[in-house]
Design a protein around this nucleic acid. Structure first.
Lengths: 228, 228
DNA sequence: CACAACAAAATTGTAGACAAAATTGGTGAC
DNA sequence: GTCACCAATTTTGTCTACAATTTTGTTGTG
């Protein structure tokens, strides 16, 4: 797993990033088959690189690899989606709590700086930047809370959340404005741990309830289930 | 990443398990270089398999791979060790809390069954089994708490804990008897979420404080630091 | 005598070729 | 006409050889 500061863009990381973006932007739909040779040709690299990228995507939950059958864009079940949000609420609520307990001025500055970037993206209606920055906000909290390990876990969870959002996004535009982020930052700045905890929990609940996690929305990949 | 039921022992998984055991049993000390060809010869497999096993070990935090320089048994810093325990206390305390809220009879039976196995191992003084079962107990709680994702995170954390224990184990035999586990199970069975939470938190705290996580115990791998 | 630059050895990273497995299409029997 | 079985194709998994990089040892110069 990559460390926090990962600037060197290895060739397989580029492939990873490209596929990641394609999935997050719903260009690659869940269930799509990802043939190794096809990707190798597309990116002008050998299959070995593609295999590494696919393996990395698998451990981040974005693709599923079936033995001897190939890689497919993952199709998170409703159960898995709820599980991801359960984990996020548990972890992030405690992280803001910890951060609120002793917030350094530097931390608050970085958070406020980030909020400005988010506001700018919203004004520009840059959907791609909005999604990216929204994830970054949550990662920033993990970083400032001082847990390198949970930062990595959260990075993984946010990847999965992106896929879940792509699959179960309801028609109502889940704008998820920066207001809730701003409130959380305020609570942290005041050192109000209980309120920060509460706000983060509700923030994630809002994101979850904005999705169509109803049973009828579950698209079973098993044709037997569909055609009976 | 492997799913919960993973019975098929792939050849590279065997290599993974062998190295894992060797590290946990302190036969392979932190900092030891793991040359690919050497391992390939040792296990009578090709280097490709070894590379896969090493990559898996790296993402579980047991080895560190430096680009173009090879793989080494990881040397968790004190900071990383404390971070792992922070994450475990956060996650596991909440998991027992959740499990205590609605413990099924089946869940309680499995926990009690596990406690018996632990007692048997302690009576037989089977150190290897004790370590293994101790980890299994914590994983069992995650499984019964119903979070597949956090089960995977915890599996990773327990791997790292094994390495940390191997490195920072104090001379006093950290027996970590099954008594504390039994108390936790009792609290769960009674549905006493608050107490289960409290007991788990203290249990992990005991394990952590039983280690030599003092600064002077930090063995710096950087020769520059050592010889000045 | 010490330091720096260079060359050689060792080790990892990558690519291409081969083997194993699974799916698909076709053929034959009932 | 339908089902089962077998062969052919496609796709993945694995192995071996080559290239790139790092480390180590040597030599020459200040």
């Amino acid at each position: 797993m990559n460390d926090m500061p990962s600037d060197k863009t290895l060739p397989q990381d580029i492939i990873y990033a490209r596929i990641w973006s394609a999935i997050a932007e719903r260009k690659l739909r869940p269930g799509t088959r990802l043939k190794e040779e096809q990707l190798a040709e597309l990116f002008s690299v050998s299959r070995a690189r593609v295999r590494q990228a696919l393996a990395a995507l698998e451990r981040d939950g974005l693709v599923t690899i079936f033995r001897n059958r190939g890689a497919f864009v993952a199709e998170p079940s409703i159960e898995e989606a709820r599980d991801v949000f359960f984990a996020r609420r548990m972890i992030e609520a405690r992280l803001v709590e910890r951060l609120s307990a002793a917030p350094s001025q530097q931390a608050i500055d970085r958070l406020r700086q980030h909020l400005n970037a988010e506001k700018a993206a919203h004004l520009a209606q840059d959907r791609k930047a909005i999604i990216h920055l929204s994830g970054e906000f949550h990662l920033l909290i993990a970083e400032l809370a001082g847990s390198r390990y949970l930062w990595q876990v959260l990075r993984d969870l946010i990847s999965r959340t992106s896929l879940i959002t792509a699959v179960y996004q309801s028609h109502s535009d889940t704008s998820c404005g920066p207001d809730e982020h701003a409130q959380i930052v305020e609570a942290i700045a005041r050192g109000d741990a209980a309120r920060a905890n509460h706000l983060m929990d509700h923030h994630l609940e809002h994101i979850e309830t904005a999705l169509d996690l109803t049973d009828e929305n579950e698209r079973s990949t098993d044709l037997k289930d569909i055609l009976t």
